[in-house]
Design a protein around this nucleic acid. Structure first.
Lengths: 195, 195
DNA sequence: GTCTATAACCCGATAGAC
DNA sequence: GTCTATCGGGTTATAGAC
């Protein structure tokens, strides 16, 4: 239908996987959402799982331009940037009645035994996220004690976000997410005060 | 086949849902695992989702006898009890090559739009977990400052565990879980030191 | 590259004998 | 309560014309 058929398929799949999950999204759903027919999808992709791989790769490639840069617009303080990132997930939750959270985390838990390339792309997405946040904590310099493990702290930011999303999605209230982020903030305050 | 057919079905489903997820477990899988035939399952349950409800209720009822009490055997310190609980999840991860984590969290994220009774039972499971941990923090008395929100801190323990499980399952390494728990421990150390 | 039709399969659930 | 056979429908993927 156009030169960007493949991209439309990936974008449609991205939307649907985030909204309904991977298993609950049928190929027919993707075809309908993208406005293409089966022949086109199977021309570009060997199968459904390869569409998932393309989606996960798109997330990975979009980390900076689609997630970090919008979140960090007008925020220069490196530690505030971490909370600006968390705030973006809060906005996603709040604007969807606590239905939509982190698409990577949902897929990561939905697929119990993913094929290696899928699992590796999921891990690469987490790794990119953690690395970006780690950079913020490194940039914060001596506001955090020299003994503070920046990488582990960034991983803790991720687990706070993912766990908070899970709790809020289940309770259908933003409270769980907010509570977790508030505790994480308090922890960072203690770390800064301890220097 | 016996007077406990219904229980065998629930137990089989519990095992399979934890191992493969809800959607990837077919009724035929449950029948095979439980050693019963379709007629028996549909005699006791209207459908597959009702088996899930029974499983979630079993987890809820088993929280104390199956999870808390074994974790807290020989551990009297209320704050150490929280970490003993987290240690139990670590053992589950470690003994399964980081495949098996928290079955409730997996199902919570797998089902994007669960029917109300399912979502409510998932929330009730989280609520029971959080309440139990909150009790520990309350029991810790003035070792934590009076201004510390015990309930939010318990929720933070849950998000730390669930997020850590997600990260470790994806990376197939225990590091993410250990890092998150280490940070949580450090936070509690700061809270205790600040009193 | 795109479209239609359909193959081959698995699913949850049911019917009805015992 | 238990067993067998099967229905009806949705699934991924393919075949083949255009």
């Amino acid at each position: 239908m156009g030169p960007d058929t493949k991209e439309r398929i990936v974008y449609a799949a991205m939307t649907l996987f985030a909204r309904k999950g991977y298993g609950s999204t049928s190929v027919a759903d993707i075809l309908h959402e993208a406005g293409v027919h089966a022949g086109s999808l199977y021309h570009f992709f060997p199968g459904k799982q390869d569409v998932l791989l393309a989606v996960l790769d798109a997330y990975r490639q979009g980390l900076r331009p689609m997630l970090l840069e919008p979140s960090w617009k007008g925020v220069d303080d490196p530690i505030e940037r971490v909370f600006a990132l968390l705030e973006r997930y809060r906005a996603l939750l709040a604007s969807s009645q606590c239905t939509y959270g982190c698409p990577i985390g949902s897929i990561a838990l939905e697929l119990h035994e993913p094929d290696p390339p899928v699992r590796e792309l999921l891990a690469a997405n987490f790794e990119g996220w953690i690395s970006a946040v780690e950079s913020c904590f490194i940039e914060a310099g001596d506001r955090l004690g020299a003994g503070v493990d920046r990488r582990a702290l960034a991983g803790f930011a991720l687990t706070t976000m993912e766990g908070g999303v899970m709790l809020s999605r289940t309770e259908r209230t933003i409270d769980g997410f907010d509570g977790a982020v508030r505790m994480f903030r308090d922890y960072l305050d203690h770390l800064e005060a301890a220097v």
